[in-house]
Structure formats: structure tokens, C-alpha cells
Amino acid sequence: MSEAFRKSFEVRWDDVDLNGHLRSTRYLEYATTARLGFLVASGWDVRALQKEGFAAVLLGEEVRYRREVFLTEQVEVACEVVGLTEDSARWRVRQTVFREDGEEAAVVHSLGAWIDVRARKITAPPAGLRAVFEAARSEECEVL
């Protein structure tokens, strides 16, 4: 098990709602950006995925809000793999949004899969990509 990948964000004026809180949709956008950052940091940017003929598809997301986040605060999103099928074709990633004070602001669970873009079907990823997800498994990672 490895340490979770982390990405930081500053909450900008266009990230907040009329109440001055981080907008609900922005939590999902931060989670997606952090997930992409995890792939890029692991050597799997968009070009590498395209070269292999693979893409990630999102099958569903769930967000649980825990604490408020306000304008100009710094947040950090930690990404961990919490579920994989035996062939790693389908995955579940937990993205935890932390406030400046270290408290959890929200937890986003994303369920996704790898798709072979030529065949247009869910399939096991290339060995190198599979290894990246295997290495990012959390301690409580379950078999999907």
C-alpha cells in the first residue's frame, strides 16, 4: 500500500456559491482534477492513454459533505484506490477533500472503468496502468 496521491487547490471567487461556500459541483471538479493528476504523475497522461487506445469512463459518483469550505481557503484532495476488479478493468477511487485545518470537508467516491476506445468496451488496462492502480490500493481496498 502506498501513500495517497495529493493535489492542492486554492478556493477562488468563482468556486463559491451565494452563501460563500465552495459550490457542490466544484468538489466533483476538484476530485476529477486530482484523479487526472494522479494518472499524470504516474506517467499516464492523455497522450499515453491515447497511444494505448484506452480511456477512463465514469460510471457514477457519490459525494458526502462534512465541513464548510470558504473563499481563499486552501484545500487538498487525496486520492486512493478503494476497489478493483480482479483484472482492474473496473475501479473505485476515494477522493477526500481536506480543509486547511486538516479536517475532512468532503469525500467523493468515483466508480469507473477502463475502456478500449477501438472496441468501445470495458476491458482490462495495459499492464503498466494496471500496476499503477494496484500500487495505489488503500488498506481497505475491496475486490469489486
Rank of each mutant, 00 (worst) to 15 (best):
P125I: 11
Q50E: 06
E52K: 06
Q74T: 10
T72E: 13
V81I: 11
E103F: 07
V82R: 12
A136T: 14
V143C: 15
V117T: 02
F5D: 09
G102P: 01
V143G: 15
H21N: 05
E61P: 00
E73L: 05
G37R: 00
L36M: 04
A56V: 04
F133L: 03
R94Y: 14
R99W: 12
R94M: 13
F70Y: 03
L71E: 01
T85N: 03
D17W: 13
P125M: 13
E68R: 09
A55T: 00
K121A: 02
R118T: 08
D87E: 09
G53R: 00
D45V: 05
V63H: 01
F38P: 02
G43L: 09
R130Q: 09
G60P: 11
E10G: 14
F5C: 15
G128R: 05
D116L: 02
D87H: 12
C79L: 01
R64D: 03
A41N: 02
L71K: 08
A105V: 07
I115L: 10
T32D: 08
D45N: 13
R6H: 11
R137Y: 10
A4T: 08
G37C: 05
G102F: 05
V97K: 07
G83N: 10
E10H: 15
S88N: 10
A89M: 15
H21Q: 12
L39W: 03
V63P: 06
R90D: 10
R137V: 13
R120Q: 08
E104H: 07
A89I: 15
L22E: 09
A56L: 07
E104R: 11
R90L: 08
R26I: 14
T33I: 14
T32S: 08
W44R: 00
E68P: 04
S42R: 04
L49Y: 01
G128C: 07
K121H: 10
L58G: 03
R67D: 04
A136S: 13
Q74H: 13
R137F: 14
R35C: 00
A127D: 02
V11E: 15
R64N: 07
T33M: 14
S138V: 11
R47K: 15
G37W: 01
V108D: 02
T32Q: 05
V16K: 08
C79T: 04
A113W: 00
G83P: 01
T123I: 14
Y27C: 14
A135M: 15
L111T: 03
V132W: 06
L59V: 04
V16E: 11
A124H: 10
L84M: 04
R64A: 08
V82E: 13
Q74D: 10
T96W: 05
C79D: 07
P126W: 00
R47V: 11
R66C: 02
R130T: 12
E104C: 04
A105I: 06
Q95C: 14
L18F: 15
E104N: 07
A4L: 04
R67I: 01
A105T: 11
R6Y: 10
V63S: 05
I122D: 01
E73S: 01
Q74R: 09
S110D: 06
V11A: 09
V69D: 04
A127T: 00
W114G: 00
A48D: 06
E80A: 09
E140T: 15
V82Y: 11
V75H: 14
D15Q: 12
